[in-house]
Simulated assay, not measured.
Amino acid sequence: MNHRPEDLVTLFNTLFLKSRGTELVRGDDEPEYLPAGVAGDYARVIFAHGYFASALHEISHWCIAGEQRRRLTDYGYWYCPDGRSREQQQAFERVEVKPQALEWLFSVACGSRFHISVDNLDGGGAIDEAGFRQRVIQQACRYLDEGLPARAGQFLDALTAFYGTGPDHFRRWRERHACLATGPAGAAHSLTTVSEAYDAIS
């Protein structure tokens, strides 16, 4: 399957340029979010180096950010770069669970490979990489069971239509990761409801 970032730009901008005043833009260096007024007439979700995965990740952050956050450059967050302390890395891993869960589901819809990112090579890596991966999987399963945020659901629909994917792709993903897809109380998510859950968010 061909994964061109230009296709993501077209899909995103068709959905959200007019309806949400936001455009996806291919950047040269670091990813960034610029609100309208700073970026021009439209807010800009800028992804790094033309990378397909970077575009999905930055879209995921935008899909989660609330209205007030979307009025602020980089959603008002101060990004601590690679080389983080233990406390900084713990904070990073907490806030990255939801966007990486969405990014993983977007990747499933595209038929593209997803890589968990702890993004701290110079600071000793993850605090708990296995635990972080499990929390991301759990959150992705909750999204499938309970529904995605509205903008994320719209974008997932666009991806599944464009790439010709559907409930079977998500069922297989759940089956591959069933051993980690447990809730906080230890109860496994049901694999028999994946089609219904997907239909509910389509």
Rank of each mutant, 00 (worst) to 15 (best):
N2K: 12
H3P: 03
R4W: 02
P5H: 04
P5D: 09
P5M: 06
L8P: 09
T10A: 14
T10P: 02
T14F: 05
T14N: 14
L17D: 13
R20P: 08
G21R: 13
T22Y: 06
E23R: 15
E23Q: 15
L24C: 04
L24T: 06
L24W: 01
V25C: 07
D28L: 13
D29L: 02
E30N: 10
P31M: 06
E32V: 06
E32P: 08
Y33D: 07
P35E: 00
G37L: 07
V38N: 04
A39M: 12
G40A: 02
D41W: 07
A43I: 04
A43P: 06
A43C: 10
A48E: 10
A48L: 11
A48N: 00
H49E: 15
G50D: 02
Y51F: 09
Y51G: 10
F52N: 00
F52C: 08
S54W: 06
H57L: 05
E58M: 01
E58P: 00
E58C: 03
S60H: 02
S60A: 15
W62H: 07
G66H: 12
D74A: 03
G76Y: 06
Y77C: 07
D82W: 01
G83D: 04
R84S: 06
R84C: 11
R86C: 03
R86P: 11
E87W: 06
E87H: 01
A91F: 01
F92D: 03
E93L: 08
R94Y: 14
R94W: 14
V95Q: 11
V97F: 10
K98T: 12
K98S: 13
W104Q: 09
L105A: 08
F106E: 03
F106K: 00
F106C: 08
F106T: 04
S107G: 05
V108P: 02
F114N: 05
H115M: 04
H115Q: 12
H115C: 05
I116Q: 01
S117E: 14
V118R: 00
V118M: 02
L121E: 15
L121A: 15
G123I: 00
G125C: 10
A126M: 01
R133I: 11
Q134H: 09
R135S: 05
V136T: 11
Q138K: 11
Q138F: 09
Q138W: 05
Q138M: 11
Q139K: 12
Q139P: 05
A140V: 01
A140M: 03
Y143T: 10
L144W: 04
L144S: 02
D145T: 06
G147F: 04
L148A: 13
L148H: 01
P149E: 00
F155W: 06
D157A: 14
A158Y: 02
G164F: 09
G166S: 15
P167L: 01
D168E: 03
D168Y: 09
D168N: 08
R171A: 14
R171K: 12
R171S: 14
E175A: 01
A178D: 05
A178I: 00
A178G: 06
C179L: 15
A181W: 10
S190F: 05
S190R: 10
T192K: 14
V194R: 09
S195W: 09
A197P: 06
Y198H: 12
Y198S: 07
D199H: 15
I201K: 00
I201H: 04
